[in-house]
Design a protein around this nucleic acid. Structure first.
Length: 587
RNA sequence: GGGCCCAUAGCUCAACUGGAUAGAGCAGCCGACUUCUAAUCGGCAGGUUGAGGGUUCGAUUCCUUCUGGGCCCGCCA
């Protein structure tokens, strides 16, 4: 439980006030009883001249209450004005209530930030809610490439964000080790094993001839010697498959670790086979009347060459919002990929998660509706599944698009990127775009330590803050958080200082908004704005030296530095959500 | 043919989930370094939010039609 040391989310505090005053108006007969207040919002106004906070209450209540918005606004304004935190209330535009807060509110907020430290902004939104975030889930057939990086960073940042918002988060990786592609992997590794014994081999179409398996073949030789050299596939396939997927997963874990991504649970597709779990999940659907033998309509438009009508085992996903029913069995009697995935999601539901989040590449967009249908059916509608699709990353190098090709040797692995660019820059840049918009990753720009590169901009602001703290300490001024929290921050009255405090005040609200929408990119954008405010304040202080953080008088210095340090607290909390290490110094 | 996603300043993108006069960065122009760190800051200019229609006090946001781009479309995963 987080100890509340003062105001955390000022916006929700004021919204609580607005709601309680509306309820009082209903009780007093000024408004009809039983109004739905869900649409009542308290937000920062776009234009600072409109005050500190605005509410749309009068407008959204006007119609259901059958009263003109102004009449509601006037009575509500009078009530709000009586609160000690509110200095003035204006009615503006079509019925907005604009509120100005008393200066001591901002002072109190800074104190709260300093006392809470890295916990400042931690929310209770997800209190008691177990959420599972499944991400990456790359096939264990090779090293991770750049295309995987964005999904990995997004999923990890989302998990950190949700944890910060109070959710009980599990990060999970679904290993696709049950399909034909791991048999292909095994045969490719067997080839490398033969080569390790100086034998010549053929590489059939569709195998994995990548160099990364050479070492695996040698490891296999070191482990089993020559016992499988003249044996048929039936003898070695399963063991080689297990050996190879273990090696690949080892490599993938290492790749993820380079990026600073740590999974809580690795679930195996293969492990679902033979346990009855797939059968149980399908039977559960069958008992609901959602599994049947039938024939699908051919897809409209051009048909696949080999299309022929065929009766198959289908999941009635249309009963839960899908466009067509989906096959769960192949013609050879084996399960489709969908079937174990149904079982896997059923397993997540049974483990007691209240919410599921899947992070897929955009090329899996066609899979979304059927997966949601399955979870909806198997959880009886209890567990929402949100699927975030991660759009393409376009690589740029030397000012032109950089095409990845295994054959041309321009295949870019995750390791290549992280070793060249570093995990911090990689992560930040990958989070500067909404997940559903394509992202340009320009090697030249991200390597450049310029303002084109937002991560350096944010880091620079943080370095400046630390520089001030360092200097103050050298001067013998105490600037530990406890001392700063007790400083006389009420003397920070300059508009630029107040503006800085207001920006800090938005942090807890931003965390909730970002968490509610599963949108970690909002944190990156907010940090950029916060850094911009700090840099602006810094420059103003060149002309107006009274704005400098370090002053002659220690008490004044402490008050000023309290503001700087509170900004630094938010920057490091925000960077922690993005998984980026704050730098103390840039020279 | 159908489904999903995208379209906002010359370029790259935001816009607090329906709020007030749509904001940043880059590029362009003008200006600020005897500095608490210029990897920075201030200013100017830049818009029919792809197009049309609808819903309402109010639309970049929701619905609909169209245009253009991406992804996907029964026994691959």
């Amino acid at each position: 439980m987080i100890q509340r040391t003062g105001p955390m989310n000022l916006f929700s505090d004021i919204r609580t006030l607005v709601v309680s005053e509306i309820e009082a108006m209903m009780a007093a007969g000024d408004l009809p009883a039983g109004l739905d207040l869900a649409a009542v919002a308290v937000e920062p106004p776009r234009d600072a001249s409109h005050g500190d906070m605005a509410t749309n209450a009068a407008m959204v209540l006007a119609k259901p209450a059958g009263l003109p918005p102004r009449a509601i606004a006037e009575k509500l304004a009078a009530r709000l004005g009586a609160d000690s935190r509110i200095a003035a209330v204006d009615i503006a535009g079509p019925g907005f209530l604009n509120m100005a807060l008393v200066p001591s509110v901002w002072a109190g907020l800074l104190v709260a930030a300093l006392k809470s430290g890295d916990d400042f902004g931690r929310a209770t939104l997800g209190q008691g809610i177990k959420v599972n975030v499944e991400f990456v889930s790359a096939n264990p057939t090779g090293p991770m490439h750049v295309g995987h990086v964005r999904g990995a960073v997004f999923g990890d940042a989302l998990a950190r964000l949700l944890a910060f918002a109070g959710y009980n988060v599990t990060r999970e990786y679904y290993i696709n080790d049950g399909g034909a592609q791991v048999d292909v992997l095994a045969r490719s590794v067997y080839n490398r094993y033969l080569e390790a014994h100086d034998l010549t081999v053929d590489w059939p179409e569709g195998s994995y001839p990548g160099d990364y398996l050479i070492e695996v073949g040698e490891d296999l030789k070191a482990k089993v010697g020559d016992i499988w050299l003249d044996e048929p596939e039936s003898v070695w396939l399963e063991e080689v498959r297990n050996f190879a997927t273990d090696k690949m997963m080892e490599q993938i874990r290492g790749d993820l670790a380079l990026l600073g991504v740590q999974m809580d649970v690795y679930s195996s597709e293969k492990a679902l086979y033979g346990t009855g779990q797939i059968e149980a999940a399908i039977n559960t659907l069958r008992e609901m009347g959602l599994i049947y033998e039938g024939t699908l309509e051919p897809p409209k438009g051009k048909l696949p060459d080999d299309w022929e009508a065929r009766e198959q085992t289908l999941f009635r996903s249309t009963a839960h919002g899908d466009d067509v029913d989906r096959p769960v069995k192949k013609s050879d009697g084996g399960w489709t990929y969908f079937a174990p995935d149904i079982a896997y999601h059923y397993n997540k539901v049974q483990r007691g998660f209240d919410q599921l989040i899947d992070i897929f590449g955009a090329d899996h967009g066609g899979y979304v509706k059927r997966m949601k249908a399955a979870v909806s059916a198997l959880s009886g509608g209890r567990v929402p599944l949100d699927i975030k699709l991660i759009q393409l990353v376009k690589l740029w190098k030397n000012g032109e698009p950089f095409k990845m090709s295994k054959r041309a040797g321009t295949f870019v692995t995750l390791r290549d990127v992280v070793e060249q660019v570093g995990p911090d820059v990689t992560r930040f840049v990958m989070l500067t775009r909404k997940n559903d918009a394509a992202l340009d990753f320009d090697f030249d720009k991200v390597m450049e330590q310029s303002k084109d590169n937002p991560v350096f901009y944010v880091q620079y602001a943080n370095a400046r803050i630390n520089s001030v703290l360092r200097k103050a300490r050298e001067m013998g001024v105490a600037v530990d958080d406890a001392t700063l929290a007790a400083a006389d921050v009420a003397q920070l009255t300059h508009p630029a200082e107040i503006a800085m405090a207001k920006k800090i005040a938005e942090w807890p609200r931003l965390v909730e908004i970002a968490a509610r929408g599963n949108e970690p990119h909002r944190v990156a954008f907010y940090l950029y704005e916060l850094a911009s405010d700090l840099n602006g304040l810094w420059s103003k202080a060149k002309e107006d030296t009274s704005l400098r953080f370090i002053q002659d008088d220690p008490a004044t210095t402490q008050a000023k530095i309290a503001l700087a340090r509170a900004t630094g607290v938010v920057i490091s909390a925000g960077l922690a959500i993005l998984g980026v290490t704050p730098v103390e110094e840039m020279r």
